[in-house]
Design a protein around this nucleic acid. Structure first.
Length: 421
RNA sequence: GGUGAGGUGGCCGAGUGGCUUAAGGCGCACGCUUGGAAAGCGUGUAAACGGGAAACUGUUUCGGGGGUUCGAAUCCCUUCCUCACCGCCA
């Protein structure tokens, strides 16, 4: 959620920048400010009444102590009047505040000025490319066939015990998965991130804190008996660590491995084939909490960090700056990382690194103390480093030959083998 | 799952309806003291939303929500959470 004072102070600028998303939010911005003026008026009046009522209560206490019963009773009557008035005002205020909140939740984050205008994903801008697309021979096969051929993943077994989208990794296939997790975590720790292993379920408050609730409720698995939700990403528990906090040392850098659970309601067809889209997948996440002045530099650092991992894995990749249309609701600037899956012959998203500025921090009440000693909202950033399934799929597809799959060198210490036959 | 005890400021902890403007302590900051430090002494020490150029000031907040009352940390209802013991258990 945007902060009201920020909207007030940057009204024109925000309206202009929001147009990058291809939607005009000026009406809603202006009426939010109008409603807020109304709120202030009501509060002023309410505060005065409550102040008077508080004074009266004290006087009544004094009167009773002095035995001045008549005076006390008279004042009591006045206080009852005040009370009725304040109740009404309180109701008005609540209503107006709810109104404001409703409007605010409809406004997405303000795009960074560098975000390109666009009408579809085709307008995302490729800012960097690397790696070699391998020349596979024409007998090459996609990963869903490879995992069967080499006995690495059993989708049918997952179907049997849970349902589609819940693969079972086995043998070297499971080791490879574990190797990737360890490798990613080590890379992130070496880059200064502190490793966490968070709970894989969160309570309702946390789901609200990072914005999964109320709007994305249908995307999460829930455990209604215990009022818990299975996390769709480690971002949810990790970012919520810092809910309601006043941070004193920047930057806060966290990394966490977790399985991610997503209902993916509405997905279908070849996009969900094999490892491309799952209900449970594994991911290593990086999260940073940063001073507003530095957050965009930090975003660049995070992009470089993720890029370095893809380079070490020798995967063909490209980095896209998302255009206004494709930019997530809560993000101000996002870079997507895609790797080229040589057997499927398409680009697969493996990471998305975003600066949310103060949009998440506002809801989380995540603040720091500025040079004047006032509290101010932090900026939050996160990204995947990396999501496993598509990296996994691309590694085995791109490194396949007739009778074997070669494992990228950087993973050998983690797998203990360099080839799958 | 059963029983019991709790949830108060950055932390510990007192507080059974108005003398609470939340005692006292710890921590932290600043000052005095010192050659320098420690100790000691003194002062200050939450957040949100308002008013004000500022000094300052109003309201709200004692886990959350609701209620009783002129007045609630304190009484009532409800809900969440934590801890202890028992049961079960990797």
């Amino acid at each position: 959620m945007l902060h009201l004072n920020d909207i007030r102070n940057n009204k024109e600028k925000y309206i202009e920048l929001l147009k990058i998303r291809g939607v005009d939010f000026s009406d809603i911005i202006l009426s939010v400010i109008e409603k807020d003026d109304e709120r202030k008026e009501i509060q002023k009046e309410l505060d005065q009444i409550l102040a008077l009522a508080n004074q009266n209560s004290k006087k009544i206490g004094d009167f009773f102590k002095k035995g001045m019963i008549t005076e006390a009773n008279e004042l009591k009557k006045k206080s009852i009047d005040l009370k009725n008035k304040s109740k009404q005002l309180q109701n008005n205020k609540n209503q107006v505040e709810e109104n404001i909140k409703d409007m605010l939740t409809q406004v997405p984050n303000v795009p960074h000025e560098s975000v390109p205008i666009g009408s579809s994903e085709n307008d995302n801008v490729i800012i960097s490319k690397g790696g070699e697309i391998p020349n596979l021979n024409k007998n090459c096969i996609p990963h869903w066939d490879l995992v069967e051929k080499y006995n690495l993943i059993d989708f049918e077994l997952g179907n049997k015990i849970t349902g589609s989208g819940f693969p079972v990794y086995k043998g070297k296939g499971a080791v490879l998965q574990r190797a990737l997790v360890s490798y990613f975590l080590n890379k992130n720790v070496a880059a200064g991130y502190t490793e966490y292993l968070p709970p894989f379920m969160v309570n309702e408050t946390s789901a609200f804190g990072t914005g999964q609730l109320p709007d994305k409720e249908g995307q999460m698995y829930s455990v209604p008996d215990d009022n818990l939700y299975l996390i769709p990403t480690a971002e949810v528990p990790v970012t919520n660590f810092f809910r309601d906090q006043i941070i004193s040392d920047f930057p806060v850098k966290c990394t966490a491995y977790s399985p991610c659970f997503r209902r993916e309601a509405g997905s279908y067809g070849k996009n969900v084939r094999g490892l491309n889209r799952l209900h449970q997948f594994e991911k290593v996440e990086i999260v940073q909490i940063e001073h507003p002045d530095k957050s965009f530099d930090t975003l660049n650092n995070m992009v470089q960090h993720v890029e370095s991992i893809l380079i070490e894995l020798s995967l063909p990749y490209r980095i896209l700056k998302l255009c206004g249309k494709d930019l997530g609701f809560t993000s101000s600037l996002t870079y997507d990382f895609e790797v080229y899956s040589a057997a499927q012959k398409k680009w697969l998203e493996v990471s998305s690194v975003s600066n949310f500025c103060s949009y998440q921090a506002n809801r989380l009440k995540l603040r720091f103390r500025d040079e004047n000693g006032n509290t101010s909202l932090c900026h939050t950033l996160n990204g995947s480093a990396l999501a496993l399934p598509r990296v996994y799929a691309t590694i085995i597809e791109n490194n396949q030959s007739e009778n074997e799959i070669r494992i990228p060198k950087v993973l050998h210490p983690y797998t203990g083998f360099d080839v799958i036959r």
